[in-house]
Computed example of a mutant assay.
Amino acid sequence: MTRPVALLTGAGRSNGIAWAIATTLAADGWDVAFSHFGDYDRRMPLGGDPDRDPAALVAELQGLGARTIVLDADLADPSVPAQLVAEASAALGPITALVLSHAESVDSGILDTTLESFDRHFAVNTRASWLLLQAFAAQVPSEGGRVVALTSDHVVGNVPYGASKGALDRIVIAAARELASRGITANLVNPGPVDTGWMDDETRIALTAAQPSGRLGTPDDAARLVRFLVSDDARWVTGQLIVSDGGFSI
């Protein structure tokens, strides 16, 4: 039996959400192509080992029975999104699930954000996502496919990140309507505060105290929802921004 193929972005670190999604999908019978950007992972103090983790994820996915391909890609380059889709589909076959989990995220506010940083956030988080959607839709098989994007409403003190994610939200919701005739569903997941290496102790304590459940979200929490959204069980769910944050936003 042919395994379906998923393309995930932003899966370069073992403590990241995309890593959990990749292994969850592989365990469910998917073949998985994934991208990461080593330069970003090395310059950001987010934990993990950017020089070893991508190879370790390949090994883990293969151990779960998945065919896989890893692609180191700077999504700020407008030629890269189409190349990712082309290389992934050439290696594994037509892609039926696109999971957008990449992000440029460098804290700055309204007064101290540079033009260069603002433009790079929108190039990576917004423009690249749009271009990936275009390329994905062009090759999706007749039975259709799934798009899931990870988003955030964290914008205060993180203006270029939050603003570019807000633009991503609108694009994905538009895709749900525009691409429906191709059998494509498109949804967003806001996982709330998940410690993927960006929290210091003070932040971790404060956010945990604000959670009704008394615990932070985990990458696995997000992966479980993505697993559902790319499955046939979610065929009637589209155009939704699902806040799955353990009650943090209530």
Rank of each mutant, 00 (worst) to 15 (best):
T2C: 04
R3M: 07
A6C: 12
L8K: 06
R13W: 02
I17P: 11
T24W: 00
D31Y: 07
A33S: 11
A33D: 09
F34R: 08
F37M: 00
D41P: 01
R43L: 12
R43H: 11
D53V: 03
L57R: 03
A59C: 09
A73Y: 02
A82C: 12
V85T: 12
A86E: 15
E87L: 10
S89N: 12
A90Q: 15
P94R: 09
L100F: 08
A103N: 04
E104M: 08
D107A: 13
D107E: 03
G109C: 13
L111C: 05
E116T: 04
H121G: 05
F122T: 00
F122I: 06
V124D: 03
V124N: 00
T126H: 08
T126I: 04
L131A: 00
L133C: 12
Q134G: 11
A135W: 03
R146F: 07
V147G: 10
V148K: 06
A149V: 05
T151G: 05
D153F: 01
V155N: 11
V159Y: 02
L168R: 02
L168W: 04
I173R: 15
I173W: 04
E178M: 07
E178I: 02
A180P: 09
T185L: 10
T185Y: 11
V189W: 07
P191R: 05
G192P: 12
R204G: 04
T208H: 01
A210P: 02
S213P: 00
P219E: 07
A223G: 13
R224N: 12
R224S: 13
R227V: 05
S231I: 10
V243E: 15
D245G: 14
G246K: 08
G247P: 12
F248A: 13
F248R: 14
I250G: 10
